[in-house]
Write a protein that binds this DNA or RNA. Structure first.
Lengths: 231, 231
DNA sequence: CGTGTATATGACCACCTGGTCACACTATGA
DNA sequence: TCATAGTGTGACCAGGTGGTCATATACACG
């Protein structure tokens, strides 16, 4: 179980923790700032104050370095979602959607650079092993929303006349755009989410989930839990 | 009125139409493939079979070349949306949302490379004049959905208990993700939109708008305004 | 023809990239 | 003390970048 990562050389794992963390931090910063192709190993080593040759003794090449931080990213994502959800398992479908949203916000708050890397990879075509890496994340989407929707559908909590895949797509679009807007002001539609407090953010999420639940048309606002009577 | 563009030098505008189009086409292709920073002028001139010096007589520098194609992009967007909507002005709110969606699909079908450039700019930070360019587009979002929502809200067609900005955000998230999924298979949530026919795509849009209108909960297909899809 | 002007050209520049490698350093163990 | 092994180093490489400029060419007008 000592095999922490196949991307890093043994030399790297033998490094003192402090140095290892510094290298990871700087590497993540550079990839987040510039994406894969434009990220400069020269800048990384300069900022770290180490020789380029050293970096190449820790990692085979640029690709291995990148894969390493991406692996870190996937670990952190899964950890954060698990932590944010596992503690209390609400039964209500929309509450659970909300929990995922909040966990996601927590993640981008805590690890903004990692999230930037993910966004960059999404729209940078010539990243090595891109498909494999993205498939490994498929951020929150199918693994979580899939079972959630199917269960709710079977229980009759959500409508049955729309394919589950379509519902997942909408939830995913909603979540992803919410995160993107949170990080990139251009995408928040003027909501100013970037500067919101956690409390305001939670209120916004509630507001939006309300619309998702009842639609653009319905005006009445009844209980926030469970489904109200049909009709 | 002859001043077509401030980004291109006079020399470029004097060029024969055919050559001008070839240059634009290849430039758009390269920026779409590689984003701003990684796009190579050397590759552009090689593919065009012209000398690098020539390109620099048409455009001051890389930035001017990029701004030129981005200006083209904004023109084409506005044109396409106008064409797709102006002809028949449906009164129904959701029909008009659908029309925007279809116009957007038409755009990315017709000008996929221009759309790629837009996506790249969205997630590439060090693009010159990025904020200005993105603000100029604010793709479909506020300029169109804003008035639409406000009108519908005043007429009582959509709920009044949610701020318009929030509704716009949801519509925008929906549209943007739909387009991104259409172009990038990773983001379609397994729907396989990339390979859908126009007819199937339209059906999917109907399906999703139905959810937006009535929410995740309602199963019955009634609606407030009556006609649903094809009646 | 000659002359002037607008355009086309590609060698060339400084700078940066990812990657290499011969060498220096350090620490252990005997 | 020597030897071995692990680690650190930075000059160096080939190849790419955006950008320049002296020169060659094409074309107009007299």
């Amino acid at each position: 179980m000592k095999k922490k990562s196949s991307s890093a050389n043994a030399t790297f794992n033998n490094l003192p923790l402090e140095k290892r963390e510094a290298i990871i931090r700087e590497t993540v910063r550079e990839f987040a700032a510039s994406g894969y192709q434009k990220a400069s190993l020269n800048i990384i080593v300069k900022n770290l104050g180490i020789a380029k040759g050293s970096l190449y003794q820790y990692f085979r090449n640029k690709e291995a370095l990148f894969c390493f931080v991406f692996e870190e990213f996937t670990h952190l994502v899964k950890q954060t979602v698990k932590d944010g959800i596992g503690q209390e398992r609400s039964a209500d479908f929309f509450d659970r959607v909300k929990q995922v949203m909040l966990a996601a916000i927590t993640f981008v708050d805590r690890y903004p650079d990692y999230f930037q890397i993910y966004l960059k990879v999404l729209f940078e075509h010539d990243v090595p092993r891109r498909e494999e890496l993205l498939a490994r994340v498929r951020l929150f989407s199918r693994e979580y929303f899939g079972p959630l929707c199917e269960e709710a559908r079977e229980k009759g909590v959500i409508r049955r006349d729309i394919p589950v895949a379509t519902l997942i797509f909408l939830l995913d679009a909603f979540l992803d755009r919410f995160l993107q807007g949170y990080v990139q002001p251009y995408l928040d539609g003027g909501l100013g989410m970037a500067k919101m407090s956690r409390k305001k953010l939670t209120a916004k999420i509630d507001e939006m989930i309300k619309v998702l639940r009842d639609g653009f048309v319905k005006e009445r606002d009844k209980g926030s839990k469970g489904q109200r009577g049909k009709g």
